[in-house]
Amino acid sequence: MIGFYTYFKREVARFMQDALNTIAPSATSVILYIMIFGVALATRLGLVEGQSYTRFMMPGLILVSVITNSFYNPAFSILQSRLYGNIADVLSSPLATSQIALAVILAGMLRGLVVGTLISLTAWLVLGFQVQEPLFTLLYLLLASMGFAALGSIAGLWTHGWEGVNVITVFFLDPLVLLGGVFYSLEMLQSAPLLKTITEINPFTTIIGGLRAAMIGTTEISVESGLLLTGILALIFVSLALVLFHRGYHLKA
């Protein structure tokens, strides 16, 4: 266990020692969203699903921050270790490949949850934002961060350069998030049927809707269905990451 803990600690130290470049930017940008939407625009936008727009948007912003940070940490760490060659330190050690994968995924989860916590605290302090179902919310964020940290580790294995991570962000993560109802509800799309269809078939819509139900009590999507889908995605991505690490995909010649 010392070996596993050491590698986990290294992965955490990697983003904590450089918090100004890892934690601060995403927390700051979301806090800016809160300021702009919450203070400047919320009164003009009216109610969405019976909630103020800021309150409606908050779960989505938190979730997006959690998953992007959970994704980026393992993606960049693994890619960097592969490019520099120091991934050999752990591959040549007595650590099991599953321990390497899990340490990386757990560290990614931690980064996502640290950012999520900072944003939640800011929302609570600035807007008085409170969570209705704290346990469900925590479980949700744990599963979401796990799934996307695993996806990040897969991206870190798959890509051969920094551009590869950007490709996944631009062509996969951004559309998934932006067309998943972070900033709008389905009922707001009555006049845009194509966007409505895309949003409906986007699994992220269910995930974010479920989280919104747990955090602020909306009813468009149930907590259970969102939680189930998040859990299934986490299971798929973690399993795939474990298999790829075990096979030494892009790690061993």
Binding site: I2, G3, T6, Y7, K9, R10, D89, S93, P94, L95
Partner: peptide, 10 residues
Amino acid sequence: VYQAGYFGIA
């Protein structure tokens, strides 16, 4: 120190 840790040394 990290290298030693990977090999299970406290």
